[in-house]
Amino acid sequence: MKKYVFMASVAMLFIVSCKKDVNDTSDESELVPLSVEFDNIVGGQNLFLNTVTYTNGAGEDFNVSMFQYFISNISLRRADGTEYVVNQDSSYFLIRESDAATRFARVKVPEGDYRQLSFILGVDSLRSTMDITKRTGVLDPSGGMEDGMYWGWNSGYIFVKFEGISPSAPVDPSGQRKFRYHIGGFGGYSAPTINNIKKITIDLSASGIARPRKGRNANIHLMVDLLKIFNNSNNLSIATNPTVMFSDFSTNIANNYTAMFYHDHTEN
């Protein structure tokens, strides 16, 4: 029984948070395209996998072999405060640095002038516990251990996977100096545990509001600075924490990475 109560409260939270758009009577056929572009960078530099060495706030050199994350539950707010929530079934994206095509989250929204963008970095708890038939596309838990974004032994999605090589990391059994950050945790199914689901809200008014219109493709261009994973409210050192997966410490990284995103410009 306890489980149901717990699940029900999780569901309630979602119902409450989704309620906002009930006054939105947009007709599905009237929707126009809008994309959100996730442009991964490292401080002032573009991100290149494997080849380039970067330095984090602790002064540790590193390069990046993998950087990928889930973006979901996109919503947009108009100047008058009304919000449009993208149909949830079409609102899951896996942004992978290794595949340039995945840098765009493409959704459909009513024409309008939008001043604020929100999304979840990760996969919401409701979807994380849905029947397997509802887990298609990027949510299909069929990936392997290497580039998969799913924990089989502790049912749940990995929200952010960030791996690389650093001279500050200890030698692992494969002889490499690898660091691995696999961050997830949707709050637990039958017993509560860490919740690293992060809602990100970005104001677009300073760098260009989005004006999606029929026959055009508005694009909100975001920068995603992975240096923030190391340095924001918590300082992270590769030497001290070369591997962070499902653990209490992971919440520090999750609190850091909420600051990765900033709005660069909008192409309307």
Partner: peptide, 17 residues
């Protein structure tokens, strides 16, 4: 108790090293 749905269970042994 790490797996909460039998339909998700086989993923664990298939992917375990």
């Amino acid at each position: 108790g790490g797996v909460f749905d039998l339909d998700l269970q086989p993923i664990a042994p298939i992917t375990a090293h």
